[in-house]
Design a protein around this nucleic acid. Sequence first.
DNA 1: CTAGTATTCAAGTAATTTATTGAATAAATG
DNA 2: CATTTATTCAATAAATTACTTGAATACTAG
Lengths: 236, 236
Amino acid sequence: MSSGSFKHDLFSQFARVGKALSNANRLELLEFLAQGERGVEELAKVSGLSVANTSQHLQQLRQAGLVTARKQGQHVYYSLSGEDVVQLLGCLRRVAEQHVAEVEKLVNTYLTVKDDLEPLPREELLERARKGLVTVIDVRPPEEYAAGHLPGAVNIPLSELEAHLQELDPEQEVVAYCRGPHCVLAFDAVERLRKKGLKARRLEDGYPEWKLMGLPVESSGPAENNEPQTEKEPAP
Amino acid sequence: MSSGSFKHDLFSQFARVGKALSNANRLELLEFLAQGERGVEELAKVSGLSVANTSQHLQQLRQAGLVTARKQGQHVYYSLSGEDVVQLLGCLRRVAEQHVAEVEKLVNTYLTVKDDLEPLPREELLERARKGLVTVIDVRPPEEYAAGHLPGAVNIPLSELEAHLQELDPEQEVVAYCRGPHCVLAFDAVERLRKKGLKARRLEDGYPEWKLMGLPVESSGPAENNEPQTEKEPAP
DNA sequence: CTAGTATTCAAGTAATTTATTGAATAAATG
DNA sequence: CATTTATTCAATAAATTACTTGAATACTAG
């Protein structure tokens, strides 16, 4: 029957997307891209892969429709091809968290502080920020901060945390966030801030999830798409 | 640094879930399982794979945490390990639809009727059903209907469609649904009903999506979990 | 206990995937 | 135009995956 072949062809296409998600290095690239647009060499550096290998992975991601490439001069800038990709990654993470025992084990052994510092949900942060009760710090590297960050957040990359201590009010609670719910940066930051006697907590999730929910974001560097829902109109 | 290895290990676990989704046959198995619990041999038959091969795929799915196995007598019954898996599959489908050009091409060539019969959204069906304006038919095979179906839906498997025509009121609109948004069964049913001069439309999505939204479902066969949110309590 | 059925395991082969290497484009700069 | 820089392509070896086949296990029924 012809419908059998249709079904199989369709599932093969879905499987292409699955294949793109079937490799740890590609998932890492996707997490970096969820912070904002980046060039190939940059991605190679932060992910620790060779440039050629990075390029090949990016092309696989592009063929699966998860990322898009923009060529400018001799550079090629990659970015996620839509908000739905961030959502897909979130689903994947949630399913793994929920059903893959190893994930919990890993989190418990590496992120020992976890129980101690219960993460702050988005809504609560919004409320406290409105009342001026918290200082929000973004502990990602400056490029990612520049591509987009929570409104009012101060960029203090992890490496310079100690140097910026005096900027933080010891009376006010500090909330740190980074790339996502399992990114170590914010965990580390909170741990170190607490050792210094500050009141510190971690935002439940990272910048991509915040933006996905349509909450306001700011960006300093090159122009980024800030609107929650973008309406695409054909040229007039 | 140790955090690098943590990150990689974590992404490797996420990638295991991605791997499970990287094969067309496994995705097809997951779609069948989204209709309800099924035995290995049954799954092998409907998917057209050998039993041994089906078993191996199921084990991969189990290791990725996507399905669970229940042994009863000499049979092993598999089912999805949670609602979040249905959601993940939905995300995957949506991303593919949105960003993989081939999907649209396939849908357009095989499901030619598509433009003509705009699908009916969930909410509208609920509203019209409340007013008694529509007849809802479930065109899946009886086993799947038995495992769970929309309340008030009549089971008319596609093969017996013509034989049951007189049961349908020619004045009332007929709404057909099946396994999911791209399942051919409902498309086929609508096409054939229209040829017979009936007013027929297709529900936007299938049974698993309906259930996922927490909407009411009925089941006739062996007991199924009907509650929208199940609270898991340890034995008293 | 024996025969039968459902499922899984184990071994083998063909195909696919990953990462490496070195060469090929393609744009910018002197 | 030649050189540098960023990226991609092509060829390769090692590892992994998909499916087949035949045997092993586990449970049921006679």
